[in-house]
Amino acid sequence: MIDPETADAEDAALAAAPWPKRFLFERLQNAGEVFLLTGSALREMPAGIRKMGLVVNQMAAIGLGSMPLTVIVALFTGAVAAVQAAYQMRDYVPMIYLGTVIGKSVVIELGPVLTALVVGGRVSAAIAAELGSMRVTEQIDAMETLGISPIRYLVVPRLVASIVMLPVLTIFADILAIAGGYLVAVLTLDVSGHTFTSGLKLYFKIQDVFSGLLKAFFFGAIIATMGCYYGLRTEGGAEAVGDSTTRAVVASCLLILIVDYLLASFLFRVLFA
C-alpha cells in the first residue's frame, strides 16, 4: 500500500538517483511484474485452456498468420547457409559435410531462433497493440467489472497458442530451410543430392531436434508474455499503444537471444555434454 504523503518524496528520490540506479530499479520492477503476470497465467491455465475456441482462434492467428513469413525466412536462411558454408568449407572440408553443417545449424539454432525473431516481432507487436488498445478504451476494466479475468480470457489463450505454435512453426522452418539449402547446393554448388542427404544423415541426432523445439517452446512463452505484459500495462492514448508495441518487440527479441544462450549452455554443456 502506498502512503500518499510520503510517496512524492520517494518518487523524487528515485528521479534524482543516477541513471544506472534508476535503470536497474526499473528493469527489476519490470522483471517482478512479468513474474507476477506469468504466475497468474499459470494459475489460470487450467481454466483458460477450457476456452478452446479462444485458444484455437489464437493458434490460427499466430500459427497460420505467421506461416508465409516463416516460409520465406526459412527458405532463404537455408539457401544463404548453404552458400556461405560451401564458401568456408572450400579447400578444407569435403562437401559431404555441407548437409551435416546445414542440418545441424538449422535444427539447433537457425530454425528456432530466426523463426522466433520474425514471428516474435509480428506476434508480440500484435498482442501488445490489441491488449493496449483494449486497456486505453477501458475494455479490460469492463471485462473485470463483468467478473471475467483478463488473464484467463486474454493472456492464457495467447500464451498457450504461442507455446504450441512456435515449435510447430519451427518444424516447418527446419524442413524448409534444409530444403532451401539442398536446392542451392544441388542447383548452384555442384553438390549432388546424394552427397547432401548423406551428410545430413551422417551425424543426425534426435536430441538436436529436441533441443531446437525446447528452445521454440521457451521462445513462444517469451513472445506471448512480452506482448501481454506491455499491452496490459499501457496507460494513456494512441501514443502509449505505439510505445507498448515497440517495447514488446524489443523485449521479445532481447530475451529470445539471452534465453537462447542460457538454454544452449544448459543443453550442450550440461544435459547432452
Binding site: 483494449m134 477501458e138 469492463a142 473485470e144 467478473g147
Partner: peptide, 19 residues
Amino acid sequence: LLSIREQMGMLFQGGALFD
C-alpha cells in the same frame, strides 16, 4: 471480488464494448 462484481454493473464513459 468476482461474486460481488456479479451484483454490479458499470457503464463506462466510451461504452468499452469489446471490439
